[in-house]
């Protein structure tokens, strides 16, 4: 069976350009504003949405996403509400793929079977769960595949050729190449290394390879998109929200507009990625 992710990736391949994959934190700074941000993403040129599930202890995230998760939790966000947000979004957009991204414990606490049933019913297409490596596939990956939900695996610079087949084995939708060792929001790596890594992964799989960690500007998105099938932007979007919230938690401008402006620029970047430099 195909998911919205498969269909969107196939369409972009036809179009000859990489996907812009945008991450935002569900419930940051509150449910309604966050839903507004989500709706603004595809309108501003995002091709795939990563919907962050806040967790109290985000061990692989840098300060920006840590803070966003805490704002969301303080505003009362739960996994149930994150799924409701996806369902609300689906009322007016049945095409844009939604990937849930976060950590395992809230899902485990929810119950894997009921989570998958509710995620499917809410229009979720894929999952990225940071703390579930292939060694733990029985936990969620296999049940998700059976339920028709893509399980998107992270590959990293430490995933060598010996290990890559294991990482790719049950991966579907796309492969998320984390372009550096480190936490989210760190510095951008050298784009030539990224190109080499993408072709290394592509030697092992036909799945699209999206690259993230450190992409902040349209130019960086263009450079990464020259070799990758998709460019993932997360921390920059979360920062666009944080920048319009003052020390007392009051919004000083419209977060959805701030995010839309950023994403619009990034979208222009990925659309230039495969053009000759002279253009």
């Amino acid at each position: 069976m195909t998911t919205r992710i498969d269909r969107r990736m196939a369409a972009l391949k036809q179009e000859g350009r990489p996907a812009l994959v945008t991450y935002f934190m569900g419930g940051d700074p509150d449910y309604d504003t966050s839903l507004e941000i989500m709706k603004a993403l595809p309108k501003a040129g995002s091709d795939i949405i990563e919907l962050g599930m806040p967790f109290s202890d985000p061990m692989a995230d840098g300060p920006a996403i840590q803070a966003a998760g805490l704002r969301a939790l303080r505003a009362g966000q739960t996994l149930k509400k994150t799924l409701a947000m996806a369902a609300d979004f689906r009322k007016e957009d049945d095409e844009t793929p939604i990937v849930l991204m976060g950590y395992y414990n809230p899902i485990y606490s929810y119950g894997v079977d009921s989570f998958l049933a509710d995620a499917k019913a809410s229009g979720i297409d894929g999952l990225i769960v940071v703390d579930l490596p292939p060694e733990m596939d029985e936990e969620l990956c296999i049940p998700a595949l059976k339920a028709g939900v893509n399980f998107i695996r992270l590959a990293t610079p430490t995933t060598d050729d010996h290990r890559l087949p294991k990482v790719l084995q049950n991966t579907s939708g796309f492969v998320y190449y984390v372009s550096m060792t480190g936490i989210t929001g760190s510095a951008l790596p050298d784009t030539t290394n990224v190109a080499a890594a993408v072709s290394r992964i592509k030697a092992h799989t036909d799945l699209p390879v999206c690259v993230g960690f450190g992409v902040k500007t349209a130019e960086q998105a263009r450079a990464i998109g020259a070799s990758a099938d998709g460019v993932v932007v997360g921390t920059a979007i979360v920062n666009a929200v944080a920048n319009v919230i003052d020390g007392n938690g009051k919004m000083t401008a419209n977060p959805a507009e701030a995010v839309a402006t950023l994403v619009d620029g990034l979208a222009r970047g990925v659309r230039r990625a495969r053009l000759a430099p002279a253009d």
Partner: peptide, 12 residues
């Protein structure tokens, strides 16, 4: 128990 860690750490 188990090994619930990010892929970056798994090879290590």
């Amino acid at each position: 128990g188990g090994r619930f860690v990010a892929e970056t750490l798994m090879p290590l």
